[in-house]
């Protein structure tokens, strides 16, 4: 490498990669707080949905990107979170805030329960089983009509902004979603920096080696499943707050495929992958919809395949590569 020859003082002039990263985080944070006051309500709603998807993708990223387990059933956990919140709101008029921990608890328990048989399955088989479960959920939701409202779904109320905030409804929803996303992001981030994160990476990279090193495979795999399901459930609950409507047909297997596609495009195993993936999942169909009803699918399919060829680490990987390229170019000067 040529940068060995560069004197120390010259190096200081170029901000280090860590500093650039921090700057980027700060800019995103500021933009996230200012955005709802600058944009029209529909755009705010779209950003809110990006955050909702980002929370679900954080969970999926934990499972697929960090623990190396494939799930094609996260749309199912999303649906269960959404329905838990919806049924609580519909039946007992529960305050909105309480539905979030309830949805998380339910999906955590289910994820843990599914994680146990999933221990015996790997790779393709796990993908198969989770996908079948996601497909089975839709007729199941339709069947128990008295609780779930059947095919008609349930129409609910949105959380009302407290008067002291002076916020409009869309802005309040946005900040709720932002709060959940930030909390989830920080929780995952610190989890991955702990021994748990290292154990998950070991499981992903080589199960046998991980076991030899003393990582308890069963424990970490089931936990990864449970946490991941919990985050998808949290996203589902917030989705119910925002949309104020649930119906089985919003949670078909396509949602699960969309989520997996989103995290692959965003960047598996990367910190900002879920956010980029969330934006991709929301905006690409909206943009392509104008061309043709089928255009979003065509664009999605092509992009997913191309991403696997050229950038297996997704958009976040591309951004990282771009950043490093820029960094090196700056240093050479």
């Amino acid at each position: 490498m040529s940068d060995v020859d560069i004197p120390r003082t010259a190096r200081l002039a170029v901000p280090s990669a860590t500093a650039l990263r921090r700057l980027a985080v700060a800019l995103v944070a500021v933009a996230a707080c200012v955005a709802p006051f600058q944009l029209e309500p529909f755009r705010v709603f779209q950003l809110t949905m990006v955050l909702v998807y980002a929370v679900a993708l954080l969970g999926l990223n934990l499972l697929v990107g960090h623990a190396g387990q494939i799930s094609l059933g996260h749309g199912g956990f999303f649906a269960i979170g959404a329905y838990t919140a919806a049924v609580m709101l519909d039946r007992w008029d529960t305050p909105h805030v309480l539905t979030l921990p309830a949805a998380m608890a339910v999906t955590f328990a289910l994820g843990f329960g599914l994680g146990v048989p999933a221990l015996r399955l790997r790779g393709l088989y796990l993908a198969l089983v989770t996908m079948t479960i996601a497909i089975f959920l839709v007729p199941l939701l339709k069947r128990f009509e008295s609780v779930t409202g059947g095919s008609m779904g349930l129409t609910l109320s949105r959380p009302e902004p407290p008067s002291w905030t002076g916020l409009a409804e869309d802005q309040w929803l946005y900040f709720l979603a932002l709060a959940v996303a930030t909390a989830a992001g920080l929780a995952v981030w610190s989890l991955l920096r702990s021994r748990v994160g290292r154990a998950l990476h070991a499981v992903r990279d080589n199960e046998i080696a991980a076991e030899v090193m003393g990582v308890r495979l069963a424990r970490y795999k089931t936990l990864a499943f449970a946490w991941s399901a919990m985050l998808a459930g949290a996203a589902g609950a917030v989705n119910t707050w925002v949309i104020a409507f649930v119906s089985p047909d919003s949670f078909t297997v396509n949602l699960s495929i969309l989520l997996l596609a989103g995290i692959v495009v965003g960047g598996l195993g990367s910190t900002f992958g879920p956010l980029l993936g969330g934006a991709f999942v929301l905006f690409v169909p909206t943009l392509a919809q104008d061309v043709n009803q089928a255009a979003p699918g065509v664009v999605f399919g092509v992009v997913i395949i191309l991403i696997m060829y050229v950038a297996p680490r997704g958009l976040a990987g591309l951004a990282g590569r771009g950043g490093r390229f820029l960094d090196q170019a700056l240093r050479k000067k």
Partner: peptide, 28 residues
């Protein structure tokens, strides 16, 4: 061909991409 011998996850995702693509193309 380009992903031959790639990890399972990559293979699953490519065939899923194909799933979405073919389905939408038929609809188109």
């Amino acid at each position: 061909r380009p992903v031959e011998g790639a990890p399972e996850l990559a293979l699953v995702i490519v065939t899923l991409g194909l799933f979405i693509l073919v389905n939408a193309a038929a609809g188109w």
